[in-house]
């Protein structure tokens, strides 16, 4: 069961990563990237590294996304 969840999470990660790479809307990319980070944090929790997981949740999903948002708000949302 746990293995299945992990497998699904890993698939989710890959999907998110591909979406981030492919989508032309930077805002959606950032949001998907946040989800990616969150998924990563959960996997790390599964791998018995809770302190890394909580840091990733706060910094990867939180702060990094915020910074991306700030940058996009100052530039443009769509790729040319």
């Amino acid at each position: 069961m746990l293995a299945l969840i992990n497998l699904l999470l890993l698939l989710f990660l890959i999907t998110c990563a591909i979406i981030v790479a492919r989508t032309r809307d930077l805002l959606s990319a950032v949001i998907v990237f946040g989800a990616y980070s969150m998924g990563m944090a959960i996997i790390w929790q599964q791998l018995h590294s809770p302190d890394i997981a909580i840091t990733e949740a706060a910094i990867g999903a939180g702060a990094t996304s915020l910074l991306f948002l700030a940058a996009i708000s100052r530039t443009r949302r769509y790729e040319e």
Binding site: V20, L26, G60, E79
Partner: peptide, 11 residues
């Protein structure tokens, strides 16, 4: 896209 590059870096 430069922002995309940075996202790639993060991934």
């Amino acid at each position: 896209n430069l922002i995309k590059k940075i996202m790639g870096m993060n991934i």
